[in-house]
Amino acid sequence: MTPRIDWNDLLVRYHSGELDALATARVEQELQQSAELRQQLESIKDIDQFLQRQGKLTQPPKNFIDRVMYGISLPVRSSALSPKMGLILLTSILALTVVGIICLTNGFFDSYSIPLNVYVQSLYFEKLPSPDFNFPFPSKWIVTTFLISNMAIGFVLLDRTILKPYFQRRAEAAISE
């Protein structure tokens, strides 16, 4: 079985002058015999013409040079916090979080409540029997919330002061390579 000829491919190569003399002669012979192939070649020529027209340069606005010159006069944008400062803050946050987690796991905040009765009793009810004014202060939950917010702030710091500037520098370097 003879392989099917991809005439589109052959015609594109023919039009670009990529075929050898033998193949060129064969294509020209086929072109003389087939109106369909001639039409296909016309389309290829039209595409070439279209692309050449599309290949014209487009002019930027008149103030383009001024805008570029203004752009280069501006200081290079940098992060508000330096990576060094970010690292220091991040270490402090991490240390605080670790201490908080240790205290929490050891039950340090489990029994805490505000002893309102002591204050009230000493001022006004010295001779009365001690009322049970213990206000159950949810210190465990407050510390947990504080630790979660700390970790969130730590993540933002890591992103803004270390990761983002690092990847930005890498991207800038890749673009200018």
Binding site: N8, S16, S43, I44
Partner: peptide, 9 residues
């Protein structure tokens, strides 16, 4: 080029 020719056809 080939794809354009095919699409146009």
């Amino acid at each position: 080029r080939l794809r354009l020719a095919e699409e146009l056809t």
